[in-house]
């Protein structure tokens, strides 16, 4: 594997709500071997749940499609590693990303969305970068530095 990559996975799944739990369980399993805190694990699960839910309900308007989760674990320093997760959809895209990311902004009011999804992602991950174009889709790139390191060493 290239450079300091320790592990990587790609998960491709149908945009149905059952898979929200599947995606966050896979993300949790991916980092389970690291010696991280329960809170850090929950942070990652919550962020993944938010991004995947968005792909399903906003990107694909609950009509189905393919969601891809790419996760990469890289060694940063001896006692830290960097988790990157990309959640990709090829749905409707976001017209104004900056506005979409503002707390409480939502286009899903009738669906009882709170507009706090991106705020949760930003609160629980160290970096969130959203790339989107109309009718092409959206990629949510998230990074989190996980301090304590590999039990095997």
């Amino acid at each position: 594997m290239e450079g300091n990559v320790i592990n990587k996975i790609k998960l491709e799944f149908e945009a149905v709500s059952e898979n929200e739990a599947l995606a966050r369980v896979v993300a949790a399993a991916f980092i389970a071997g690291l010696n991280i805190t329960v809170d850090e694990l929950e942070d990652v699960k919550t962020a993944v749940s938010e991004a995947v839910t968005n792909a399903i309900i906003h990107g694909y308007k609950e009509c189905g499609g393919t969601v891809i989760m790419d996760a990469v674990l890289k060694r940063e320093r001896k006692e830290a590693c960097l988790l990157s997760i990309d959640i990709c959809d090829t749905g409707v895209g976001i017209e104004d990303v900056e506005r979409a990311m503002q707390p409480m902004f939502t286009t899903g009011l009738e669906n009882e969305r709170s507009g706090m999804g991106f705020s949760f992602m930003e609160a629980f991950m160290d970096k969130v970068i959203v790339t989107s174009s109309l009718n092409m889709g959206t990629v949510v790139h998230m990074e989190k530095c996980l301090k304590v390191y590999d039990k095997r060493q």
């Binding site: 966050r24 929950e42 699960k45 919550t46 749940s49 938010e50 839910t53 669906n111 009882e112 969305r113 709170s114 706090m116 999804g117 705020s119 949760f120």
Partner: peptide, 12 residues
């Protein structure tokens, strides 16, 4: 476990 969908339920 709860994500922001839970907030939507409560607000609603």
């Amino acid at each position: 476990f709860m994500d922001s969908s839970g907030l939507g339920i409560i607000i609603g």
